[in-house]
C-alpha cells in the first residue's frame, strides 16, 4: 500500500516544520541568537535538497552539477543589487529564468546519455558555471563579493532582521515542499516515478521518458536557484564556492542521508548534515576527515540513509 507511506512522510515533514517554527524560541531561551542564523542556512539547504530529491529520488537522475543553480540564485542577488534592483521577488524571478534556460539546454544534452555519463556531464556543466563566475572580476572573481544589503521585501528591508529572514525562508521552504509534494502525487509525478522504476516499460506503454525527465530537471533547477537566492542573503556574501563540485556532492549526500525519494527525508538530510558540520567543527578543524569516514561507512553499511536505519530499527522492534 502506498497511501499510508506517503501520508507518513507528510506527517514527518509537518513535524520538521513545527520544529523549525519553534527554533527561534529555543534560541531565545538558550540565549544563542546564532541558532537562528544557522537555522536559516539549514532551511535554504533544505530547499536545495528537496529540489534535488525531486529528480534524484523520483526521477533517478543523479545530477552532480546542482550547485550551479545555487550559483545562479546567489549571483542573481549580487548582480541585480549592484544595478540597484533589490527586490527579493525580482531576484528570485531572474534566478529562476536563467536557471530554467540553463537547465533546459544542459538537461537536453545530458539526458541523451545515461548512468555514469549523466553524472559526469552534469558535473562538467556545473564546473563550466563555476569557471564562468570565477572569471567575473567585477564580482570578486575567485574570492567573491559581499552584499551591501539583503534583498528587500515589498520595498522594505525587513529581511535584515535574522528572525524575519528565518521565517520568510521557512515559508518558502513550506511552499516549495507543498509544491513538490503535489507534483510527486500528480499525473506527471507518476510518470516520472515510473521512469525511475523501469524506463523500458514506461516507453512500452506510450510515454517518451526524456520529455518528462527534462521537465523535472528544469523544475528542480529553478527550485534550487531559489535556495541560492536565500543562501546568498543568509550569508550576505556570494562566491564561486557556492558552485564548487564539492557543494554538488554535499547536496547529493543530504538527499541520500535522509533517504532519496521521500521529500521530507531530503530536508531531514540537510538538517543532519549542517548540524553535524557545525558540531564537528567545534571539535576539530579537520572535520571533513570525520565527515568523509561517515560518508564511506554510510554507503557501505546503510545505503538507504537515515530512513533505512530508522526503518530497520522499527522492523527489529515490531
Amino acid at each position: 500500500m502506498t497511501a499510508p507511506r506517503i501520508h507518513g512522510r507528510v506527517v514527518a515533514a509537518l513535524m520538521l516544520f513545527a520544529g523549525f517554527a519553534l527554533l527561534p524560541l529555543v534560541a531565545w531561551l538558550a540565549d544563542d541568537p546564532f541558532l537562528v542564523v544557522i537555522g536559516a542556512r539549514i532551511l535554504a539547504y533544505g530547499i536545495a535538497a528537496l529540489a534535488l530529491d525531486l529528480i534524484l529520488g523520483f526521477g533517478a537522475m543523479v545530477s552532480f552539477g546542482h550547485a550551479a543553480y545555487l550559483g545562479f540564485g546567489a549571483y542573481a542577488v549580487a548582480i541585480l543589487s549592484r544595478f540597484g534592483i533589490t527586490d527579493l521577488g525580482l531576484h528570485m524571478a531572474a534566478a529562476v529564468v536563467v536557471s530554467a534556460g540553463f537547465a533546459l539546454i544542459t538537461g537536453a544534452i545530458s539526458l541523451r546519455t545515461r548512468g555514469v555519463y549523466f553524472i559526469m556531464i552534469t558535473l562538467a556543466f556545473g564546473q563550466m558555471v563555476y569557471f564562468f563566475f570565477t572569471s567575473l572580476s567585477a564580482f570578486g572573481g575567485d574570492d567573491g563579493t559581499g552584499l551591501r544589503q539583503r534583498s528587500t521585501l515589498l520595498g522594505s528591508s525587513v529581511l535584515e532582521h535574522d528572525l524575519v529572514f528565518f521565517y520568510v525562508t521557512l515559508a518558502v521552504l513550506m511552499a516549495l515542499f507543498w509544491l513538490a509534494h503535489r507534483i510527486v502525487g500528480s499525473r506527471f509525478g507518476r510518470v516520472l516515478t515510473g521512469i525511475r522504476e523501469n524506463p523500458t516499460r514506461i516507453e512500452a506503454i506510450g510515454f517518451a521518458p526524456r520529455r518528462y525527465q527534462l521537465t523535472a530537471f528544469v523544475i528542480s533547477g529553478c527550485m534550487t536557484a531559489i535556495a541560492g537566492v536565500l543562501l546568498a542573503n543568509q550569508a550576505e556574501f556570494v562566491s564561486p564556492a557556492f558552485i564548487s563540485w564539492h557543494r554538488s556532492g554535499e547536496l547529493i549526500f543530504m538527499v541520500v542521508l535522509g533517504g532519496a525519494g521521500t521529500l521530507s527525508g531530503a530536508i531531514a538530510g540537510a538538517v543532519t548534515m549542517i548540524v553535524l558540520e557545525e558540531w564537528l567543527e567545534v571539535f576539530t578543524e579537520h572535520w571533513k576527515l570525520v565527515f568523509g569516514i561517515i560518508l564511506v561507512l554510510m554507503v557501505l553499511y546503510s545505503p538507504r540513509g537515515i530512513t533505512g536505519i530508522i526503518e530497520r530499527l522499527m522492523r527489529g522492534r515490531s
Binding site: 576527515l289 568523509g292 569516514i293
Partner: peptide, 18 residues
C-alpha cells in the same frame, strides 16, 4: 549503484584531502 559509488568515493576525496 552509481549513486553509492559517487558518494563513497566523494567521502574518499574528503578523507584524502584532510
Amino acid at each position: 549503484s552509481h549513486l553509492d559509488q559517487v558518494l563513497a568515493t566523494f567521502g574518499l576525496v574528503m578523507i584524502a584531502n584532510e
